[in-house]
Design a protein around this nucleic acid. Structure first.
Lengths: 198, 198
DNA sequence: TTTTAATTGACTGATGGTCGGTCATTTTAA
DNA sequence: TTAAAATGACCGACCATCAGTCAATTAAAA
């Protein structure tokens, strides 16, 4: 036997060492040689830890997402109002702190749209379900606290898709200059209809 | 002088001649040589009419979109109910007839997400504005006909983003198996809240 | 015959991914 | 104790592919 490295950890390390490279140049504007250089390893070594270039984006997203989710839990813990909770939950799509993550998410989505891959689809499905469950819990609490009407459940669940859609539009058009305002205004308008009037 | 070809028309012809190729293999699984072969022209000729591979997708989308919009106008012309109009308007994302268009739209979005290009962004912006105006008109008519409440305007406008988001999810996850049902159910739920009760 | 737009496919440069080989460490057995 | 054997980690020269270029060719019009 010889040295045994923690493959899982090293995969993460390599991924993290080139986050900046990916967020700045994007996957298409980037060569494996550059990535190897940034990670200070040989080109061949990359392929000991990743299936292909896309797989690196996948790992970066994984790491950043995990980090993001932990921070989100913290951010949400102190908040009680349902409306506020939702606004914070969806700030992923415009928050200053998550610019890097969004950049990687864009790359990831791009891959998923033109190069679907079972692992990535599965990961997206897991995220989708987790987040929907999360939103559902927020809504249920809101209903129990008599903040919002029960029949609003379906509408609020659609918020996730709405946010994703607005994000895509904000990124692929010049039509949305203030996504934060757009999203928060929408939530306000929605609550006009579903809030329990006191 | 020699032959003068209609560059604009030939661009369309080439694009149309390889729609199937693109919808089947996607842009990444496709080489320029294959495209040239399908179009029965030399490889070099492609570059007389297109900036690059992505530009071909752009042109295909253009042609199919134009066709789609004309058909949409026809489909909408006979309908009077606002709810029905919206359902038909948004059937773009699941309609059997538009599978090809959606496939190309996916490719286009993918390019737009990882390789933004001024022309494509501008085109997307134009589409975005056109469609939003369209939806807005449908809503205004609904309000004037006393079908829906005026304060619903903002919510219904968000439908566009919601549909786009659901579409993205349906394509990049396994979590949505019947997008049509999902969308129509949402519209029904929305109308529960914004419909004028008689 | 001349002119010139249109066409072309051989060619080039770049790059993603492979593979044979080297190196460093651990195991083993003399 | 030691050195040979074993093996996993690492590497970069190499290969195949392919997007995009360009010099040569074709053919219609003048």
């Amino acid at each position: 036997m010889a040295i045994i490295v923690d493959k899982v950890q090293k995969r993460k390390d390599i991924a993290l060492s080139c986050v900046e490279l990916f967020t700045q140049s994007g996957i298409t504007g980037l060569t494996i040689s550059q990535v190897a250089q940034a990670a200070k390893i040989g080109k061949g070594t990359i392929y000991e830890y990743f299936k292909n270039k896309e797989d690196i984006v996948f790992e970066i997203l994984n790491v950043l997402m995990l980090r993001h989710n932990e921070q989100k839990i913290k951010k949400l813990s102190g908040v009680t109002s349902t409306k506020e909770k939702l606004k914070i939950f969806f700030d992923f799509f415009h928050n200053e702190n998550d610019i890097e993550l969004r950049q990687i998410y864009k790359e990831f989505l791009s891959i998923n749209l033109s190069n679907p891959n079972a692992d990535m689809i599965e990961y997206q499905t897991k995220c989708f379900n987790t987040y929907h469950l999360w939103v559902e819990e927020i809504i249920q609490e809101g209903i129990q606290n008599n903040e919002i009407l029960p029949q609003a459940t379906k509408l609020v669940k659609g918020l996730f898709a709405l946010n994703e859609g607005m994000f895509i539009s904000s990124v692929s058009t010049n039509a949305i200059d203030d996504l934060e305002k757009e999203i928060n205004d929408y939530i306000d308008a929605l609550f006009e209809l579903i809030e329990v009037k006191k």
